[in-house]
Deep mutational scan, measured.
Amino acid sequence: EQLARLKREFNENRYLTERRRQQLSSELGLNEAQIKIWFQNERA
């Protein structure tokens, strides 16, 4: 579920704002660094 949600977010926007990253962190139970790194890896 977390992965599917991250992929949906990535398809909508390849870059997250700090606020959006905080929201996802709270909703998915991941820390902000994990989300940031995931997005960086997807863009690579």
Rank of each mutant, 00 (worst) to 15 (best):
L28I: 13
L3M: 09
A44L: 14
L28W: 02
G29I: 02
N31G: 12
E9W: 04
R21P: 02
T17M: 04
A4F: 00
F10K: 01
G29E: 05
L6T: 02
E42Y: 05
E42Q: 11
E1G: 10
F10H: 01
E9T: 02
R43L: 14
Y15S: 09
R43S: 12
R21V: 15
E1C: 11
I35D: 01
F10R: 01
Y15H: 13
Q23P: 00
E9L: 07
R14I: 08
Q23D: 09
L16D: 13
E9M: 05
R5S: 06
N13V: 04
N31L: 09
R43V: 11
L30R: 00
Q2N: 10
L6Y: 00
N11D: 13
E27K: 04
Q22I: 10
N31I: 07
Q23L: 12
E1Y: 04
A44W: 09
L6V: 04
N31P: 15
Q40A: 12
R21K: 12
R8L: 10
R5V: 08
Q23K: 11
R8A: 14
R14H: 11
E32P: 11
R43T: 07
R20N: 06
Y15P: 05
Q34W: 15
L28S: 02
R8Q: 14
A33K: 10
E18I: 10
L16I: 11
L16P: 15
Q40S: 06
T17V: 04
Y15R: 08
N31F: 05
K36T: 15
F39A: 00
N31Y: 04
W38V: 03
E9G: 01
E42R: 03
R43Q: 12
L28Q: 01
F10M: 02
Q23W: 10
Q40F: 09
L28V: 06
E12M: 07
L3D: 06
E1S: 08
N11L: 14
R8D: 10
R8F: 10
N11A: 14
Q40L: 06
E12L: 08
Y15L: 10
R19N: 12
R21G: 13
E9Y: 06
E32C: 05
R20S: 07
L16A: 02
R5F: 05
R5T: 05
E1R: 05
E42M: 14
R8N: 08
L6N: 02
T17S: 14
Q22R: 12
R21Y: 12
A33D: 15
Y15C: 14
N31A: 13
A33P: 01
E12N: 11
S25Q: 06
E18Q: 12
L3G: 02
S25A: 15
K36S: 15
L16F: 03
W38Y: 07
K36F: 09
I35T: 01
S25F: 06
R19P: 11
L3Q: 07
Q22D: 05
N41H: 10
L28D: 00
R19A: 15
L3V: 09
N11K: 12
R14P: 15
K7R: 13
F10D: 02
F10S: 02
N31K: 08
E9S: 04
L28Y: 01
Q23A: 11
K7D: 03
A4I: 09
R8E: 13
L16R: 02
K36V: 15
F39Y: 06
I35N: 02
A33T: 13
E32N: 03
N41C: 14
I37K: 12
Q2Y: 06
Q40M: 08
S25K: 04
E27C: 08
I35F: 01
A33S: 10
A44K: 13
R5H: 06
R21L: 15
R5P: 00
A33Y: 12
E12D: 09
A33V: 13
E32M: 09
A4C: 13
L24E: 02
W38M: 05
T17F: 00
L28T: 12
R21W: 13
E32W: 06
A4R: 07
E1D: 12
E9Q: 03
K7N: 05
G29D: 07
L3E: 10
R8M: 12
F39Q: 02
Q22P: 03
R5W: 03
S26Y: 13
R43D: 07
N11V: 08
Q2D: 07
R5D: 03
Q40D: 15
Q40R: 06
Q2M: 11
R14V: 03
T17R: 03
R19T: 14
S25C: 10
Q34K: 05
R14F: 04
N41A: 10
Q2T: 11
I35L: 10
L6R: 02
L6M: 03
E12Q: 10
Y15E: 12
L30H: 01
N13W: 04
Q40P: 04
L16W: 04
